[in-house]
Computed example of a mutant assay.
Amino acid sequence: MDKLLGNGRKKLDPAEMGVIAHLYRAEVYRSTIWRTRLDTTTNWSVVTLGVALSITFSSPQASPLPLVLVGILIVFFLMLEARRYRYFNVWRARCRWLELHFVAPMLREGDLHLEEHWQDRLANDYLHPRYHVDMWTAIGRRIRRNYFWILLIQTAAYIGKLMVHPTAATTLGELFDRAAIGPIPGWFVLLLGALYCLGWGIIAIWSARSDAARAKTRRDSLGMG
């Protein structure tokens, strides 16, 4: 006979165990699909940056403007990827929660420890679904994982283009002249570029510190989110 637990919940019977097994498979599938979508937006960023590099360095007379314009596309892809990451993080967290509290205890002890009420937390997440991280945290994580290198290559290529084409720049004024876009002076364009890089860097650092602080205060080291 199944013994009742402290909260009145009986132990899982074989049918319920089967349902949870299928649920785990479904969550793994959903996390895999959304992980693939993350790779897609990263690929879009890499490809568009590659096209901009090809155009900009096609000849010494080619304009560096494509490297500036591609930054707008990279920001758009970053926002789209951060949004997708928030969805992916929900499915990933549920999979990890099931692995931590369902699969591992079953393999090690044969006891799911339902008295710890981990199943209630999972049930509440299904009843009241929500994002486990905010948008800025998601943006910061994607910058740290992928977009830092994309932005670094974009910035280095842009500065390199200004310095070497059509001839090697010898003065700061010459660099400013090459950076000018129509009526917009070059020093202002470079200032915006510096703020662009600095802004994403600040978000990445803040996100890393926020994640570290959250990990210290989390009740369980492998919790949801």
Rank of each mutant, 00 (worst) to 15 (best):
A93S: 15
A215C: 08
L80N: 13
L172W: 11
R96H: 10
A213D: 13
G110P: 11
T170A: 10
V164L: 11
T167D: 14
H132N: 12
Y126D: 03
W200D: 00
I139A: 01
W206C: 14
V133C: 01
L190E: 07
H113Y: 07
G173V: 02
K161N: 11
F88C: 01
A104N: 08
E115I: 00
A82W: 00
E99D: 12
Y147V: 00
P166S: 06
P183Y: 07
G160T: 04
G186V: 06
E115D: 15
R121H: 14
A168F: 13
L162W: 07
R84E: 08
V75D: 09
T155P: 01
E99W: 10
S207I: 09
A93G: 11
H101W: 06
G193A: 07
F148R: 12
A123Y: 02
A156W: 05
E109V: 09
R121N: 13
I74A: 02
I202L: 15
G193L: 13
P183H: 06
A180I: 08
W91I: 00
L195Q: 04
R178D: 06
L192E: 05
L114A: 04
I205L: 14
R96N: 14
L80R: 14
D120L: 15
Q154Y: 06
H165I: 00
A123R: 14
I74G: 04
A212N: 11
V133M: 08
L73C: 09
I143V: 11
G173S: 08
D177Y: 08
V133T: 09
I143Q: 05
S207A: 11
A169C: 07
A212V: 12
P185I: 01
D134W: 08
D120C: 05
F76G: 10
P105E: 04
I184V: 15
I159N: 05
R96T: 13
N89P: 03
R141D: 05
Y147Q: 01
G193K: 08
H128E: 07
